[in-house]
Design a protein around this nucleic acid. Structure first.
Lengths: 363, 363
DNA sequence: TACGCGTACGTTAACGTTAACGTATTTCGC
DNA sequence: GCGAAATACGTTAACGTTAACGTACGCGTA
């Protein structure tokens, strides 16, 4: 019988080898093949490989025999089948606007760190600001069995079917955990910095309507400005538009600001990329930074410190926010923690060389 | 019977509603539930929804009844089960060193564009320069049924089990399609540019050993230098180290170059981020760019044009390379095209403000 | 009226796994 | 030396789909 089993096995194997050229799937080995190889059944092999409760009664010698065979045949469990059976995929969906921008990439890098520590994988989709695409993608991800979502800079309006954590989400929807920066604090530190440098004519670059932080951040700025007696002049407020994720974004709006011919000594931009773009517009127009115009950015992306001059900015700990989002989601999925509606993140002012006392340029 | 069916259905549904609070999976509806709802079997419903060959004999009225029920119940096919059955996952694995660096993110954005057009998804893994982790991850991805791999800036040495496309891969392994820049051409245009500006003392930043382009690019530079009679002085060659993906990477090596006290009028850096970091080191030491030192970068990442001065660089069309990689892989997987060992990409010199004639600073 | 053919579905098995339960043999206590 | 318990496995069914095959019925035709 042993002889027969061996013969059987070897013909199977040689059959596979012949086919391998054509179909790469042919040489991936299943549980049943491992079981055949050691003369046991799939159930037993499964129990040992997962060392489940049932395997307590399997003697060490058999266990070793099984493990050896699995290694030898290079057995890789089929996660599809396993997931179908145990109803878990250890996969989450990451939904963002675009792939490749500094903001999203950094958040995703934080997410990935945590997921890999906890043996989860993720599928990424970019909805390109299209509401319908967003809906389609979340359905497709559910089809693929993701156990939860992390959205980045994307507002959700409907209550989702699965646990969802929104990085920079603001609509308060039940069953969505929002990871949000403390925008009040952010506005305070930035405006206080500029005010204490003597700036009283401050220009603003408002975020695009599609960006989920825009509204909340602007409201915080308005509220804090009032408290600090900083006047917000409509002539000095410019609305960003476009979905560019390079500094090109801010360039035309920097020019626009200058063309209004309303004097200002400082700019508080919506984010670092628009700040850097605006800086270039200013510099091309002969303005010196910070002597003529001080500039404060937002985010503290990698390149902020390498802008010329190095950019003063409100730091959002993006990678950390990604980590926190992932941790919150996994704990929630695995029932280690309850749903919480919000996790607040503290911003931090990073003072570099793009800000200086007002009027510095007049001397 | 119809009454019974309805009753049955409604109790099922209310049962689900009660459970929904506890288990989110409870309210996702299966093919069998749709079938029950219309009083048919799962097989029939499946045939209609996929409009397979078998559904030719299903009358329009029934077809509509099924489609309506599926919509009404919000049926979403379970891709795990489907994939297990049809042995296809429409998923590929993207393997990169890190997530969040400008180079990789841009390539991935190109990949994603093509995948989404063709209804594929992707799982991303970052192996952090660890060979063993790379191996582990590729096994895990195979477990999850990916149909192919795209690697970014990662050398593979073993012949892979699945179709693989390597962006900036250089080891020639059979069954791997390499998407490679024409490094000879790149070296030619960069060195010719510097030489024609009169530079004859050129410093070089060599790529890190872990970066897969390093060796090939350096060899191309050496070969072209010889042909153009450009002398490469060992004292002016610095080896980059570290896995930083911000300009911070180049900063210490820019300093190191200056500290050697060997005069040079130009720098050809391994990539843009190291070029920008080195520029800052030069500027901090009082050197003007380009008057005292011309700098040429490599890649043309988003920020290159917003460096001060705007960086002259050898452009790699990163997004396009991602697109080409994805297209090649999908065509290969779906048998629309044969395996090809290499696809060459043409670099392009982008002249901005970081280069000028040698000796300009002496006047 | 018997036969064939088209119509409209149902049935079965399989994809690879695993949890729950079954069964045959051995070991041990008293 | 007999029953109970432990040991070492096997068997079955199910996860949700789909491809291949099967069947029952009605209709037209020779």
């Amino acid at each position: 019988m042993c002889f027969l089993a061996l013969r059987f096995e070897s013909t199977i194997l040689s059959g596979k080898k012949l086919k391998r050229e054509k179909n790469p799937k042919e040489n991936i080995v299943t549980l049943k093949e491992v079981a055949n190889h050691v003369g046991l059944t799939a159930g037993t092999v499964s129990a040992v490989l997962n060392n489940s409760a049932a395997s307590r009664s399997i003697p060490e010698s058999t266990r070793q025999r099984i493990l050896a065979a699995a290694r030898e045949l290079n057995y890789r469990p089929n996660m599809l089948a396993r997931s179908l059976r145990v109803q878990r995929t250890y996969t989450i969906g990451v939904i963002l606007q675009e792939i490749g921008d500094a903001y999203g990439s950094t958040v995703v890098s934080g997410i990935e760190e945590v997921l890999s520590e906890r043996d989860f994988f993720f599928l990424t989709v970019a909805h390109r600001h299209d509401k319908r695409l967003l809906r389609t993608y979340s359905d497709l991800l559910i089809s693929r069995g993701v156990e939860g979502f992390i959205t980045v800079d994307t507002s959700i309006s409907e209550k989702p079917v699965l646990p969802t954590v929104a990085v920079a989400g603001h609509k308060y929807v039940s069953d969505v955990t929002n990871i949000t920066l403390d925008h009040r604090k952010a506005a305070e530190i930035a405006l206080h910095h500029l005010k204490s440098l003597g700036h009283d004519r401050i220009a603003f670059l408002k975020g695009q309507m599609e960006s989920s932080d825009s509204v909340v951040r602007w409201e915080a700025i308005c509220a804090v400005a009032q408290e600090l007696n900083v006047i917000i002049r409509p002539e000095l407020v410019v609305q960003l538009e476009g979905k560019d994720s390079t500094p090109e974004l801010g360039y035309p709006f920097g020019k626009q600001l200058l063309s209004r011919n309303v004097p200002f000594t400082a700019l508080f931009a919506y984010n670092d990329i628009s700040a850097i773009g605006a800086m270039r517009a200013f510099q091309e127009a002969g303005k010196r930074i910070p002597e003529d115009i001080s500039v404060v950015g937002f985010d503290d992306i990698n390149f902020a410190s390498f802008a010329r001059p190095a950019l003063t900015t409100v730091r959002q700990p993006l990678k950390k926010m990604g980590r926190i989002a992932a941790k919150a989601l996994l704990d929630w999925i695995e029932g280690r923690s309850e749903y919480m509606p919000e996790i607040a993140i503290e911003p931090e002012l990073v003072i570099r060389n793009s800000t200086s006392p007002a009027g510095y340029g007049k001397s």
